[in-house]
């Protein structure tokens, strides 16, 4: 089971800024461990962010994104107390979904 994300969302001048910190190893599949064996690829492939039930961001991730990725984006609209849901799926089929309220 993956560890929770930290999500912050705040609305200002009609735009909502969402900041997401994800806990993930993001292994490229090209790194070797101390015994020389290849560490299997393990990375987030797709991320979805919803404002209430509407998708506001759909992103494809790959092995070039760092360990414990940080993502920040803005969308038009949003009001205090609205729900933001961020979900990701990785190449091993593991997934995680967390939510936060707009401040």
């Amino acid at each position: 089971m993956a560890n929770p994300m930290r999500i912050r969302a705040a609305v200002k001048d009609g735009f909502t800024e969402v900041r997401v910190l994800m806990s993930h190893v993001m292994e490229t599949g090209q790194r070797k461990d101390s015994s020389g064996a290849l560490v299997p690829a393990h990375f987030i492939t797709e991320l979805t962010a919803k404002h209430n039930d509407k998708v506001v961001l759909l992103a494809q991730f790959g092995p070039s994104v760092s360990t414990n990725p940080y993502l920040s984006f803005k969308f038009q609209g949003g009001a205090k107390g609205d729900k933001i849901v961020v979900s990701w799926v990785d190449n091993k089929g593991d997934s995680r979904s967390d939510e936060a309220l707009i401040a």
Binding site: N3, R6, R19, L21, T67, N68, Y70
Partner: peptide, 9 residues
């Protein structure tokens, strides 16, 4: 990346 310090995780 100050507002995204992974130490928070």
């Amino acid at each position: 990346i100050a507002d995204g310090n992974p130490a928070e995780l």
